[in-house]
Protein backbone atom coordinates (compact mmCIF):
# COMPACT_ATOMS: atom_id res chain seq x y z
CA UNK A 1 0.00 0.00 0.00
CA UNK A 2 1.34 3.43 -0.95
CA UNK A 3 1.14 6.67 1.06
CA UNK A 4 -1.19 8.08 -1.60
CA UNK A 5 -3.72 5.37 -0.67
CA UNK A 6 -4.19 6.51 2.92
CA UNK A 7 -2.47 9.82 3.70
CA UNK A 8 -4.87 12.74 3.42
CA UNK A 9 -2.81 15.51 1.81
CA UNK A 10 -5.05 18.25 3.17
CA UNK A 11 -4.47 16.95 6.69
CA UNK A 12 -0.65 17.03 6.59
CA UNK A 13 0.81 19.18 9.40
CA UNK A 14 4.34 20.42 8.60
CA UNK A 15 4.65 22.21 11.92
CA UNK A 16 2.94 20.84 15.02
CA UNK A 17 2.30 23.40 17.75
CA UNK A 18 1.74 20.87 20.52
CA UNK A 19 4.66 19.71 22.64
CA UNK A 20 2.88 17.00 24.66
CA UNK A 21 1.44 13.65 23.61
CA UNK A 22 -2.28 14.36 23.97
CA UNK A 23 -1.91 17.79 22.39
CA UNK A 24 -0.10 16.36 19.37
CA UNK A 25 -2.75 13.66 18.91
CA UNK A 26 -5.55 16.22 19.20
CA UNK A 27 -3.89 18.48 16.65
CA UNK A 28 -3.53 15.65 14.12
CA UNK A 29 -7.09 14.37 14.59
CA UNK A 30 -8.31 17.97 14.22
CA UNK A 31 -6.48 18.22 10.91
CA UNK A 32 -8.21 15.02 9.72
CA UNK A 33 -11.50 16.54 10.78
CA UNK A 34 -10.73 19.81 8.97
CA UNK A 35 -9.88 17.76 5.87
CA UNK A 36 -13.29 16.10 6.05
CA UNK A 37 -11.85 12.66 6.82
CA UNK A 38 -13.41 12.40 10.28
CA UNK A 39 -16.91 13.52 11.23
CA UNK A 40 -17.04 16.47 13.63
CA UNK A 41 -19.20 14.53 16.08
CA UNK A 42 -16.57 11.77 16.31
CA UNK A 43 -13.58 13.95 17.21
CA UNK A 44 -13.53 13.20 20.95
CA UNK A 45 -14.26 9.51 20.45
CA UNK A 46 -11.38 9.10 17.97
CA UNK A 47 -8.95 11.01 20.23
CA UNK A 48 -9.97 8.83 23.19
CA UNK A 49 -9.42 5.60 21.22
CA UNK A 50 -5.95 6.72 20.15
CA UNK A 51 -5.03 7.69 23.72
CA UNK A 52 -6.38 4.35 24.96
CA UNK A 53 -4.14 2.54 22.50
CA UNK A 54 -1.15 4.55 23.76
CA UNK A 55 -1.89 3.29 27.27
CA UNK A 56 -1.15 -0.27 26.08
CA UNK A 57 2.35 0.86 25.13
CA UNK A 58 3.69 3.90 23.35
CA UNK A 59 3.58 3.90 19.56
CA UNK A 60 6.75 5.98 19.74
CA UNK A 61 8.91 3.23 18.27
CA UNK A 62 12.27 4.99 18.35
CA UNK A 63 14.29 7.01 15.82
CA UNK A 64 12.11 10.03 16.64
CA UNK A 65 9.06 8.38 15.06
CA UNK A 66 5.57 7.59 16.37
CA UNK A 67 2.61 5.88 14.72
CA UNK A 68 -0.41 6.68 16.92
CA UNK A 69 -3.45 4.80 15.68
CA UNK A 70 -6.88 3.40 16.50
CA UNK A 71 -9.77 1.55 15.00
CA UNK A 72 -13.00 3.45 14.81
CA UNK A 73 -16.31 2.48 13.21
CA UNK A 74 -16.99 6.01 11.95
CA UNK A 75 -14.45 5.71 9.14
CA UNK A 76 -15.26 3.63 6.08
CA UNK A 77 -11.67 3.35 4.94
CA UNK A 78 -8.22 3.78 6.39
CA UNK A 79 -7.39 7.47 6.84
CA UNK A 80 -4.10 8.95 7.93
CA UNK A 81 -1.97 12.02 8.21
CA UNK A 82 1.67 12.98 8.64
CA UNK A 83 2.93 15.61 11.05
CA UNK A 84 6.35 17.03 11.81
CA UNK A 85 7.46 18.67 15.03
CA UNK A 86 10.69 20.66 14.91
CA UNK A 87 10.80 21.01 18.70
CA UNK A 88 9.94 17.37 19.37
CA UNK A 89 7.18 15.86 21.48
CA UNK A 90 7.60 13.79 24.63
CA UNK A 91 5.80 10.62 23.55
CA UNK A 92 7.16 8.15 26.12
CA UNK A 93 9.00 6.46 23.26
CA UNK A 94 10.69 3.09 23.62
CA UNK A 95 14.13 4.68 23.35
CA UNK A 96 13.24 7.73 25.45
CA UNK A 97 13.88 10.16 22.58
CA UNK A 98 11.43 12.91 21.70
CA UNK A 99 9.32 12.38 18.57
CA UNK A 100 9.66 14.55 15.47
CA UNK A 101 7.76 12.47 12.88
CA UNK A 102 4.18 11.27 13.24
CA UNK A 103 2.07 8.97 11.11
CA UNK A 104 -1.45 8.89 12.57
CA UNK A 105 -3.85 6.21 11.33
CA UNK A 106 -7.57 5.61 11.89
CA UNK A 107 -8.97 2.43 10.41
CA UNK A 108 -12.32 0.64 10.26
CA UNK A 109 -12.47 -2.19 12.84
CA UNK A 110 -13.18 -4.80 10.17
CA UNK A 111 -10.16 -4.02 7.99
CA UNK A 112 -7.06 -5.15 9.94
CA UNK A 113 -5.30 -6.06 6.69
CA UNK A 114 -5.34 -2.48 5.42
CA UNK A 115 -3.89 -1.22 8.69
CA UNK A 116 -1.15 -3.85 8.52
CA UNK A 117 -0.23 -2.93 4.92
CA UNK A 118 -0.10 0.78 5.76
CA UNK A 119 2.12 0.00 8.75
CA UNK A 120 4.33 -2.16 6.53
CA UNK A 121 4.79 0.71 4.09
CA UNK A 122 5.45 3.31 6.79
CA UNK A 123 7.99 1.01 8.50
CA UNK A 124 9.80 0.22 5.27
CA UNK A 125 10.19 3.88 4.33
CA UNK A 126 11.20 4.94 7.84
CA UNK A 127 14.09 2.46 7.79
CA UNK A 128 15.70 4.73 5.22
CA UNK A 129 17.75 7.39 7.02
CA UNK A 130 17.56 9.79 4.09
CA UNK A 131 13.76 9.67 4.03
CA UNK A 132 13.63 10.31 7.79
CA UNK A 133 16.10 13.17 7.61
CA UNK A 134 14.37 14.91 4.71
CA UNK A 135 10.98 14.49 6.36
CA UNK A 136 12.23 16.01 9.62
CA UNK A 137 13.65 18.94 7.65
CA UNK A 138 10.44 19.51 5.67
CA UNK A 139 9.12 23.04 6.07
CA UNK A 140 5.86 22.95 4.16
CA UNK A 141 3.00 20.65 3.22
CA UNK A 142 4.35 20.67 -0.34
CA UNK A 143 7.76 19.44 0.88
CA UNK A 144 6.10 16.53 2.69
CA UNK A 145 3.82 15.71 -0.24
CA UNK A 146 6.86 15.57 -2.53
CA UNK A 147 8.73 13.23 -0.16
CA UNK A 148 5.72 10.92 0.13
CA UNK A 149 5.41 10.86 -3.66
CA UNK A 150 9.09 10.05 -4.02
CA UNK A 151 8.72 7.26 -1.47
CA UNK A 152 5.70 5.93 -3.38
CA UNK A 153 7.91 5.87 -6.48
CA UNK A 154 10.45 3.71 -4.65
CA UNK A 155 13.10 6.40 -4.37
CA UNK A 156 13.74 5.49 -0.75
CA UNK A 157 13.56 2.36 1.34
CA UNK A 158 15.35 -0.91 1.51
Amino acid sequence: MKFANFISREAIRPSLDATDKEGAIREMVQSLLDAGRIAAGEYEAVVKMILKREELGSTGIGRGVAVPHAKHPSVEQLVGTVAVSAAGVDFASLDGETVHLFFLLVSPPDRPGDHLRALENISRQLRDDTFCRFLKQAKSREDIEQLLDEADNNQFGS
Binding site: I61, G62, R63, L94, P112, G113, L116, R117, L119, E120, I122, S123, R124, L126, R127
Partner: peptide, 12 residues
Protein backbone atom coordinates in the same frame (compact mmCIF):
# COMPACT_ATOMS: atom_id res chain seq x y z
CA UNK B 1 14.09 -4.00 15.60
CA UNK B 2 10.45 -2.88 15.63
CA UNK B 3 10.60 -1.26 12.18
CA UNK B 4 12.08 -4.38 10.63
CA UNK B 5 9.42 -6.63 12.17
CA UNK B 6 6.62 -4.30 11.08
CA UNK B 7 8.05 -4.26 7.55
CA UNK B 8 7.35 -8.01 7.28
CA UNK B 9 3.65 -7.12 7.15
CA UNK B 10 2.80 -10.63 8.30
CA UNK B 11 -0.95 -11.14 8.28
CA UNK B 12 -3.32 -13.67 9.83
Amino acid sequence: EVLQIATLGAAQ
